[in-house]
């Protein structure tokens, strides 16, 4: 048993982090916020070229031939930088929807009450009739409301979304720590105060517990383990983002700081899956 990342997995994670730092830095993020609903097709194709969508297709079919654990690491990186677009649906459509694997085709999936990126997508899986637009709380995720009934989300969709939540939770923890080290009040960094320290420590605890759950579910593919990953990753992303707002103080309440983007996206991702109540019932039934 060696649950830690292999050298290849570390290299993959680093590679994706470097790619995203180059193609989707903070300026790109803020530019995307300023043009709601616009999907950068050039970036999308670059992701396709890098293997983001074809990651799990066999090499014989032009894919990268990797597995769910590697996909989880990649989606964690996407979650860290708030990469916009129907990433999970397009990734899962690779191999079945033409052009999805290469990033030519953008795919979204009507598998819940909220349908993201309808107008910017080329293909909609499942039935999207009756979709009504709403003004999305998240400036980086346009949403339509569906009347239902909905096709159930696949376990892979649940897990990859949880991986994005994990990435966001880790990132907001880092942002809070960085701010706590730099911001000074009463003549010292606010991170020297135990009340702030303990908030930050809790953020790390939530992140690491969610990480163990998400990675394990990726390795085992077990549905109960996936439910645990979903519950803990949703909670880590949402609560860490809220604590990150708190640590940032007045700045955290501004549009200009990025913190609110993490919180809103975490809400959107949590809202895309089962409710916490449903997930807890799945976990209880398994006892």
């Amino acid at each position: 048993m060696d649950f830690q990342l292999t050298d290849d997995q570390r290299a993959l994670r680093q590679g994706v982090r470097d790619l995203l730092a180059g193609r989707f830095d903070r300026d790109a993020l803020r530019a995307a916020v300023d043009v709601p609903g616009h999907l950068d097709r050039e970036l999308w194709r670059a992701l396709g070229e890098a293997g983001f969508f074809a990651l799990r297709l066999p090499e014989a079919d032009g894919g990268v031939g990797l597995g769910l654990p590697e996909a989880v690491l990649v989606f964690e990186e996407a979650g860290r930088v708030l990469l916009p677009g129907p990433l999970v649906a397009t990734h899962l459509a690779a191999g079945t929807v033409p052009g999805a694997a290469t990033g030519e085709t953008v795919v979204t999936d009507a598998d819940g009450e909220l349908l993201p990126w309808l107008d910017a997508s080329d293909v909609v899986l499942a039935d999207a009739s009756g979709a009504a637009p709403l003004r999305s709380v998240d400036p980086l995720t346009p949403l339509h409301r569906l009347p239902g009934p909905y096709a159930p989300r696949t376990p892979e969709a649940v897990l990859l979304t949880a991986a994005e939540q994990l990435g966001s939770a880790g990132r907001t923890c880092e942002m809070a720590v960085q701010h706590a080290r730099e911001r000074e009040q009463f003549g010292q960094p606010i991170g020297a105060f135990q009340a702030v320290k303990h908030l930050c420590a809790q953020m790390l605890v939530r992140t690491e517990l969610a990480r163990a759950a998400v990675y394990a579910a990726a390795v085992t593919g077990d549905p109960v383990e996936t439910a645990a990953a979903e519950l803990l990753a949703d909670e880590a992303a949402v609560r860490n983002a809220r604590d990150c707002v708190q640590v940032h103080g007045g700045m955290g309440f501004t549009w200009e700081a990025d913190v609110h983007l993490h919180l809103k996206r975490a809400w959107v991702r949590a809202g895309a899956g089962r409710t916490a109540r449903e997930t807890e019932e799945v976990l209880a039934a398994a006892l």
Binding site: M1, D2, F3, Q4, E208, L209, A210, R211, A212, A213, Y215, A216, V224, E225, A227, A228, A229, L231, L232, R277, T279, E280, E281, V282, L283, A284, A285, A286, L287
Partner: peptide, 24 residues
Amino acid sequence: RRRLGRLNAEFRALWRLTQWNVSE
């Protein structure tokens, strides 16, 4: 019931975190 379900998630994850730390 939901409380027990949540504890199931917690303790499953704590077991995985143990394996993670031992591997480290």
